[in-house]
Computed example of a mutant assay.
Amino acid sequence: MNNLLTADKIMMNAKASSKEEAIRLAGELLVRGGHVSPAYVDKMQDREQLATTYIGSGVAIPHGTNESKQEIQSTGISIVQVPDGVDFGEGNVAYLLIGIAAVGDEHLEVLSNIAVICSEEENVTRAVQAKTPEEIIALFAEGM
């Protein structure tokens, strides 16, 4: 899982007018990273319609539906930093989106590592205030 998160899959200081736009940004980074086909991005939107991927503390973890597994080529994550936040509904504002694509059951390990990192509000604040992709990679490397 070495290339799980690389600088080319981190978008700093993004502006998103809607959660759909923010999810698309996270998905496009996964496509560019060679982890998923473009169709996976649509499945990420479908998944959000089923239930929010907002997990609290200013973090959302958009990912595809169970039916989107065939669109995944390799396990990877993308990060979209949205300093101004994006509304995920019901008063929930995400400042950090962590897009996930995982082969087989690898998503369970990836999700649990992300949950541990993001359960510390201080880590989320560090990621949202980071000035470079390398700062975010270092933060996530500690927990992965």
Rank of each mutant, 00 (worst) to 15 (best):
M1L: 08
N3G: 14
L4S: 10
L4R: 04
T6D: 14
T6S: 15
A7I: 01
D8I: 01
K9S: 15
K9R: 15
M12N: 10
A14K: 00
A14L: 08
K15T: 15
K15Q: 14
S17H: 03
S17E: 11
S18Q: 06
S18E: 11
K19M: 10
E20D: 14
E21G: 03
A22M: 04
A22F: 03
I23P: 11
I23V: 06
R24N: 15
L25V: 04
L25M: 14
G27F: 07
G27T: 02
L29S: 06
L29G: 09
L29P: 13
L29N: 08
L30A: 06
V31F: 12
V31R: 09
V31Y: 10
G33Q: 13
H35N: 10
H35D: 12
V36S: 13
S37T: 13
A39M: 05
V41D: 14
K43Q: 14
K43I: 00
M44W: 12
D46C: 05
R47N: 12
R47Q: 14
E48Q: 04
E48C: 08
Q49T: 08
A51E: 10
Y54G: 13
Y54D: 14
Y54A: 14
I55F: 12
G58H: 05
A60C: 11
P62I: 00
G64R: 01
T65Q: 06
N66V: 06
N66M: 10
N66P: 14
N66Q: 13
E67L: 05
E67V: 04
S68L: 07
K69G: 08
Q70G: 09
E71W: 00
Q73F: 10
Q73Y: 05
S74V: 00
S74K: 08
T75C: 07
G76N: 10
G76V: 04
G76Q: 02
G76A: 15
G76K: 03
I77S: 12
S78H: 04
V82Y: 00
P83R: 01
D84Y: 01
D84T: 02
G85W: 04
G85K: 02
G89M: 10
G89V: 07
E90T: 03
G91Y: 08
V93R: 01
Y95W: 07
I98Y: 03
D105P: 02
D105H: 05
E106Q: 08
L108S: 08
E109P: 00
E109L: 11
V110K: 02
L111V: 02
N113G: 13
I114K: 02
I114C: 15
I114L: 15
A115C: 12
A115N: 09
V116M: 12
E122N: 07
E122F: 01
V124I: 09
V128A: 11
A130I: 00
K131C: 07
K131L: 07
T132H: 06
T132L: 06
E134D: 15
I136H: 11
I137E: 13
A138N: 11
F140R: 00
E142A: 06
G143R: 01
G143Y: 09
G143P: 00
M144D: 04
M144I: 11
